[in-house]
């Protein structure tokens, strides 16, 4: 007996909610969009090209760095995103068709009431602005990226954290179907999944700390942590966790993935510090992607004026 009765409507024929909700805009948007609506099958062939959300009329934050931007092409083709691959060139290819909508983020723990947000709902609640930040990777390369995001502190404040909320823990999506780097390999997985990161509550509430939902005025590409990621510009890049699905306010200091992986090499704080070498390589200099000559690395990645106070009285050698 045939149990699988063919559905009247194939999934490929269903217009994505995003297009449906933006139908008036799309109609105004001209021929390309009109073709897309008339023939959803065509859209399915090139979802990335058709679906890119653009953030219009962004306000540039005063906290932005005034430096030459790293080209879009470099920002989106040189990525450490082990959920896709340990090779820096591969995530761009492997994340090309990553579906980052619909997407929900659950905020829980030491707050009044756990809450789950749709990412687009979050964007409406906390209108993003442009933040140009330096990004310094622990591997001694750096970029300047125009993020689109909003302060994490705004979200946390709106949820009334309790007095026991001393730290914030973040978690990346764990879905080996969509993130091929999470599938077990012959020599064991590359990291423990899901990827976790953490901040002290005052770091999380700091105005420089943002949740980014885009770059260069457009939605985040998959390889850059779509649809929503953390950006903490005075810490090494691995702290800026990508593709977040869970934010938890906790009392105890969480263990972040890289710290668990190699406690002697990666700490909890991971503040950029030219004077504390990584055990295997120097952190004194960095190469800005696209430059030939290396440049000296600055304490706190050049954000010392804004953040050094957070660590007053702490041993900087413990802050790696």
């Amino acid at each position: 007996m045939l149990i699988n009765k063919p559905a009247d409507l194939r999934p490929s024929e269903i217009t994505d909610r995003r297009y449906f909700e933006r139908r008036r805009e799309l109609l105004k948007g001209g021929a390309a969009a009109a073709v897309g609506l008339a023939a959803p099958g065509l859209l399915a062939l090139s979802p990335a090209a058709a679906a890119k959300i653009k953030f219009e009329q962004l306000k540039r934050s005063e906290l932005s760095a005034d430096e030459e931007l790293t080209p879009y092409e470099s920002v989106t083709s040189y990525n450490n995103f082990y959920e896709f691959s340990t090779d820096k060139k591969e995530p761009a290819e492997l994340a090309r068709n990553f579906k980052s909508r619909p997407w929900t983020i659950t905020v829980e723990g030491e707050i009044g009431q756990p809450k789950t947000f749709d990412v687009d709902e979050l964007i409406k609640l906390f209108p993003p602005e442009e933040r140009i930040y330096r990004l310094r990777c622990v591997e001694a390369w750096s970029m300047v990226i125009p993020w689109v995001g909003f302060p994490l502190g705004n979200l946390i404040r709106s949820l009334a954290p309790t007095s026991r909320a001393k730290f914030v823990e973040f978690e990346t999506l764990h879905d080996p179907e969509r993130m091929p780097g999470q599938r077990p390999s012959l020599f064991g997985g590359s990291l423990e999944w899901p990827y976790r990161e953490g901040l002290r509550i005052d770091e999380a509430m700091h105005p420089l700390t943002i949740l980014a939902v885009g770059l260069y005025g457009e939605e985040l590409p998959g390889q850059n942590g779509a649809p929503i990621r953390l950006v903490v510009p005075w810490k090494y890049g691995f702290k800026s966790i990508k593709s977040i699905v869970r934010i938890r306010l906790v009392e105890q200091q969480p263990v972040n993935t890289w710290q668990a992986q190699a406690p002697g090499e990666y700490g909890f704080f991971a503040n950029v510090n030219p004077d504390v070498a990584h055990p295997r390589w120097s952190q004194a200099r960095e190469r800005r992607v696209g430059d030939f000559f290396k440049r000296p690395t600055l304490p706190f990645n050049g954000y010392a004026d804004q953040v050094a106070d957070l660590y007053r009285g702490m041993d900087p050698r413990k802050l790696y």
Binding site: Y82, T86, E139, S185, L186, F187, S190, L191, Q261, A262, R280, W281
Partner: peptide, 12 residues
């Protein structure tokens, strides 16, 4: 091997 951060498959 010594410079690999976590994925040792190639040097292996």
């Amino acid at each position: 091997w010594w410079q690999v951060k976590s994925d040792i498959s190639e040097p292996a």
